[in-house]
Amino acid sequence: MTIEDIIKPENLVYKKPDLMNDRPMHYCPGCSHGVVHKLIGEVLEEMDVVEDTIGITPVGCAVFAYNYLDIDWEEAAHGRAPAMAVAIKRLRPNKLVFTYQGDGDLAAIGTAETIHACNRRDSITIIFINNGIYGMTGGQMAPTTLEGMKTATCPYGRDVKVNGHPLKITNLLKELDGTCYVTRQSVQTAAAVRKTKKAIRKAFENNLNNRGVSVVEVVSTCNSGWKMSPSMANKWMEENMFPAYPLGDLKDTTI
């Protein structure tokens, strides 16, 4: 009996998107990035817009996103992806232009670019992974790190007197007139994954329909940075991150 005898197309219940290649990912087991990458791949395939899509990777863990999804990419300097996206969209208005950014990239070093991109009306999409920590550099404090949360640069827990408050940047972005859709989602359960996929689809449709900036925040785990098992990290996220960053649509002018 060969593998072809066992695995038949009619028995297929799950398939990763063709856009997602077979390169081994550098992400830690339990990381949310892989799931969000897959969702982007699925949505782009379902919308049949690969030939018109330009993605921008950040500096941070997702810097290598271009290794995993077979689309055209530009790799940004730290925090500058939204400025690049604005320029690309203006120069190529018919393209689907999206950035994929982490919390340090989007809400610390790139705050100015993020706010001004969201204040203009260029129809770009920002996929924002918020796990409250710098993963790539080894678990330092992020602007979104929770009060009391321990990281490599606040080893005794974030003290708001010293480090300021967790930055709810998405709440800020929804106030800007250039955004049309701002939502906060997660990917720790099958139901959450389905919701996030819907949000990405809507954001990409807004992109092509010239409706303004769409922001999809995905509250995520970084179990390595948080020093927890993947399942513990999911539980910790639900108990600690969700109260600070409640899920749901913050703004939707497209309804």
Partner: peptide, 26 residues
């Protein structure tokens, strides 16, 4: 031709980077 006043010189040069990456003369 597109003309845009950026929010900073940092943003402006990265807009150039983004546009140049798509082959445009920027």
């Amino acid at each position: 031709m597109n003309v845009l006043q950026a929010e900073s010189e940092v943003a402006a040069i990265n807009m150039v980077y983004g546009g140049a990456g798509t082959g445009k003369k920027v």
